[in-house]
Design a protein around this nucleic acid. Structure first.
Length: 570
RNA sequence: CGGGGAGUGGCGCAGUCUGGUAGCGCACCCGGCUGGGGGCCGGGCGGUCGCAGGUUCAAAUCCUGUCUCCCCGACCA
């Protein structure tokens, strides 16, 4: 019998002073987690029950698509990480053993699993395979934050698929996508699958599973017809803008002390969208060479770094003041026409040419801008979608939303990136050696829990989806030990447990208010109250946590009635 | 990594400017009352004031160094 009088559930009336996120405050207050250090958390018994319920759901769905559970070590030799090029990653914890051998604490397990694949998979007959584990990951985060949302150590479900070729990988990837949809639906959270950046090191395709919530660190763009994309990669139609007519040729305008878009717009009494913003960057190529590029955007738009990096296919940095002065013009008055070095490459954001008319651009001379500038006629350019979507944009004429969200899972097509580097090859039916095609798929159970807290909390506390609540029923007994209502509660506990419900039984010698407040804080889907009052009336009070609706059930057959009600809950 | 803030009993805080016996609320322990929204009365326990060094007759308080934690941003294979 799980009695609250003997259960380690240290609830707090007040949240930690330094907590900001709702999930951080409530998970601490409800006695689910306690902090050990920055980004390092202990899961207390009730919190661990939530975590393990999420794990159980994931395990069932991974098994359902043929996943095979295994366990790989957290502590690993550095060698494989050097070979995949990931040893230099800042977030990777590095250490030495007593023999001074270089070791790492794994942040994921591609190196280990691919090394195993290289040793165990020989023939096309050995493929496909999918393995998975629940294992701790270690990341030396620059800034852990928001309770268990962003930590340095956390359990991840990571799975890895091995296929003969890209088509096989596509199937494994799709099967994971189906499993993930079931997992997040079963966990009862609101989620989106978003288009995502694959990063520089990765292959073809990836998806991010995003749970919208206020504490989210990512922004997702949600449009019509199921369009959902991470803001990093999202595209949309910019707000239309009325432009001044194009002039036969650019015309210089004196614009003293207008080196910001705001001041220039005010000076010319034009909307910011009728101006152009010049953003000089330096593309950094793998061979160490660099190239100065001028990015041109509408005045009301911002550069999206991820899009620009993808466009270049390489990292970039902002140009230095010296580089700008030498080859373009004075800061605040940059533009594509009349650059000191006319050979500087100009890349135009697609939103600029979407509207006809003449733009204003810097003249590359102090205190001077040009009016009536037309791309193509006045300068040569390349076109690319490089701007960050704004909430005012539309898609197909429909409005969009931008919501903060937390990434609870992701799926990647790695192709042969790791297998090629670590020699994971097999012989095909013709005896030809080929690299294994891999996929990598993660879910963070802690983030699923935190997202559920964020999404459903109210002023009284947490409101768990029933599938991942620490307990199904919070049984509250009022009255003194030894009283008839206590005896009834004891009996009810056994009956509910007999119906395979998980019950937490508040048998403490405490006031009703305290017990109710703790029950609402902990957030189990049903609260059942046994009291003298109810006993006299022959009924029990049942409160649904979500919405706080009260009902009563007759004492006779109460357990069955509670179980039936529980099955109807979200 | 840049900026800002904070370390005083389990939690939340005051005291630091202006050096002089370490306090408050909650929690906790004991006794009693109460028993449907964190109730009441009485009596208690608990703190090397993050750490180290210095100044001083005397340091939570002043000085130096250091560690840790939080928030915003950058970053986030």
């Amino acid at each position: 019998m799980t009695r609250l009088s003997h259960y380690l559930l240290p609830t707090e009336r007040e949240a930690p002073a330094d907590a900001e996120a709702v999930s951080h405050k409530l998970m601490v207050r409800a006695g689910l987690v306690r902090q050990v250090g920055a980004g390092l958390w202990t899961w207390l018994p009730a919190g661990w029950r939530v975590h393990q319920k999420i794990v159980a759901i994931i395990r069932e769905e991974m098994d359902a698509i043929g996943g095979q559970e295994l366990l790989m070590p957290l502590l690993q030799p550095a060698d494989a990480w050097r070979r995949t090029g990931r040893y230099g990653v800042d977030e990777l914890f590095k250490l030495r053993d007593r023999k001074e051998a270089e070791m790492v604490l794994a942040m994921t397990h591609e190196e280990a699993v691919t090394t195993h694949a290289a040793g165990m998979i020989r023939s096309y007959r050995d493929l496909p395979q999918t393995v998975y584990q629940f294992q701790v990951k270690e990341r030396d985060e620059a800034r852990p934050r928001a309770g268990v949302l962003r930590t340095r150590e956390f359990v991840m479900k990571d799975s890895y698929s091995f296929d003969r070729d890209a088509q096989g990988l596509d199937l494994s990837y799709d099967r994971h996508a189906e499993a993930y949809a079931k997992i997040f639906d079963r966990c009862g959270i609101v989620w989106y699958r978003a288009l995502a950046d694959v990063g520089l090191m990765y292959g073809r395709e990836s998806g991010e599973y995003m749970a919208p919530c206020a504490a989210g660190e990512n922004d997702v763009v949600i449009g019509p017809n199921g369009y959902v994309a991470n803001l990093e990669v999202a595209s949309a139609d910019a707000v239309r803008v009325e432009l001044p007519p194009a002039l036969p040729e650019p015309e210089a305008v004196s614009t003293p002390d207008t080196d910001t878009i705001e001041s220039l717009a005010a000076f010319l009494t034009l909307p910011a969208a009728a101006l152009t913003k010049a953003f000089p960057v330096v593309k950094q190529l793998a061979d160490g060479s660099e190239e100065l590029v001028l990015i041109l955007l509408r005045g009301d738009h911002r550069v999206n770094d991820v899009k620009l990096r993808r466009f270049f296919g390489s990292p970039f940095r902002q140009a230095t003041a010296a580089e700008i002065a030498d080859r373009i013009g004075p800061p605040g008055y940059l533009g594509p026409v009349g650059m000191r070095d006319p050979g500087v490459r100009v890349v135009l954001d697609a939103a600029i040419v979407a509207a006809p008319g003449g733009y204003v651009a810097g003249a590359n001379r102090a205190d001077t801008h040009l009016r009536g500038v037309q791309a193509g006629r006045d300068f040569t350019y390349e076109l690319a979608d490089l701007r960050e979507v704004t909430a005012a944009d539309t898609i197909g004429g429909e409005p969009i939303r931008i919501e903060p969200a937390i990434e609870v899972g992701n799926i990647f097509k790695l192709d042969d990136y790791y297998s090629a580097k670590l020699g994971a090859n097999y012989l095909d039916a013709n005896g030809v050696s080929r690299p294994v095609f891999m996929g990598s798929y993660g879910i963070g159970p802690a983030r699923v829990a935190a997202a559920a807290v964020e999404q459903f909390a109210d002023t009284a506390g947490i409101s768990w989806p029933r599938a991942i609540a620490p307990f199904d029923v919070h049984l509250v007994s009022l009255g003194k030990p030894g009283s008839p209502e206590r005896e009834l509660a004891d009996d009810l506990y056994e009956r509910l447990a007999g119906l395979r419900l998980d019950v937490i039984y508040d048998d403490r010698d405490a006031g009703a208010g305290e017990k109710f407040a703790d029950a609402e804080l902990l957030g189990c889907p049903l609260r059942v109250t046994v009291s003298r009052r109810g006993l006299a009336a022959g009924e029990l009070e049942v409160q649904r946590r979500r919405g706080a609706e009260m009902t009563t059930v007759p004492i006779d057959g109460a357990a069955e009635a509670v179980a039936a009600l529980w099955r109807t809950l979200p």
